[in-house]
């Protein structure tokens, strides 16, 4: 992982929560989010007209959607982005919100039993993106390529991290959580056992990177070696806190994967086949 933000150096190196969360307006982020939100609530309002629609789309799903959208905006549009170079921990917290908090909220906010035709282009595309192999490979590539201190291609890593990495964390997080929670059963063949194995494997790269940061005795991430850090923390303390943040952020997905594996084992023990599991979260 490497980045150097082009933002002005903040004068205050002990910002409070209100300073960190002050929002800015970038139309390239706000407008798409507002458009998707409008589309979501338009469909929600239509669905609520029928009893079946209300059952498929209970009131708490829009609440999760709003929560996910709000977290997305704070992770990308708050003043915390100005302190990226002064706190690896703050930066990691933002990335983990995008990868491990926003995606499950957005996936769970989708109505139950979405019937997507697997023969249509959108169904085919989502069928590929939510293939466990594809999601695992993309997720692992994003975690490994941008987090290995040396970087496989320093120029690409350095010059894409600031703008591209948050988006990649969000998209690959959506893919991973899409596989785990299986919101589109008509295009997602994975049964609960394979989703459990998937969750376990998907947690591994992040946990490995988190462990390295947690236990390393030197600062591995170059731009932070001599960084001017927030709240009087040292760069090494920042790295260790980042490791904790990454590890804690990965725990819910890991726990869910273990639950799925246990459910699969129980099904096997009961002599059932794992072909038609219920979607997790129902």
């Amino acid at each position: 992982m490497t980045l150097l933000s082009m933002t002005l150096a903040p004068a205050d190196l002990s910002p409070g929560l209100s300073e960190l969360l002050a929002l800015r307006f970038d139309p390239l982020v706000w407008l798409p989010v507002l458009a998707v939100s409008a589309l979501y609530f338009w469909h929600y309002a239509r669905a609520r007209r029928t009893a079946g629609g209300r059952a498929r789309w209970p009131w708490w799903k829009p609440v999760l959607f709003v929560l996910g959208a709000v977290l997305l905006m704070f992770a990308t549009q708050s003043a915390a982005t100005n302190w990226t170079l002064n706190s690896m921990a703050l930066y990691m917290a933002r990335l983990m919100v995008l990868a491990e908090a926003v995606p499950p909220l957005l996936v769970l906010s989708l109505p139950r039993g979405l019937q997507l035709d697997p023969r249509q282009p959108l169904g085919k595309l989502l069928g590929v993106l939510l293939d466990p192999w594809v999601a695992l490979a993309v997720w692992t590539a994003v975690i490994i390529f941008w987090n290995i201190p040396a970087g496989f291609n320093a120029s690409v890593v350095t010059n894409t991290a600031a703008a591209l990495l948050p988006l990649l964390y969000l998209l690959s997080g959506l893919m991973v959580w899409g596989v785990i929670l299986r919101p589109l059963p008509t295009v997602q063949p994975a049964h609960i056992g394979s989703r459990g194995w998937f969750g376990l494997l998907a947690a591994f790269p992040m946990m490995a990177v988190a462990s390295v940061w947690l236990y390393s005795r030197q600062v591995l991430y170059m731009p932070y070696v001599g960084a001017l850090c927030l709240w009087d923390l040292s760069p090494l303390q920042n790295q260790q806190i980042s490791g904790w943040i990454m590890m804690l952020a990965g725990l819910p997905a890991l726990a869910l994967a273990l639950v799925q594996l246990l459910m699969w084992l129980i099904k096997l023990a009961d002599g059932e086949q794992g072909g038609t599991p219920p979607a997790v979260g129902d």
């Binding site: 059952a55 063949p189 219920p278």
Partner: peptide
């Protein structure tokens, strides 16, 4: 829920080499 029980089983998994 009843909805989840009526969820279709989904498509056949791809062969591993295709995935």
């Amino acid at each position: 829920s009843d909805e989840s029980r009526s969820v279709p089983p989904g498509p056949r998994p791809r062969p591993w080499y295709l995935s």
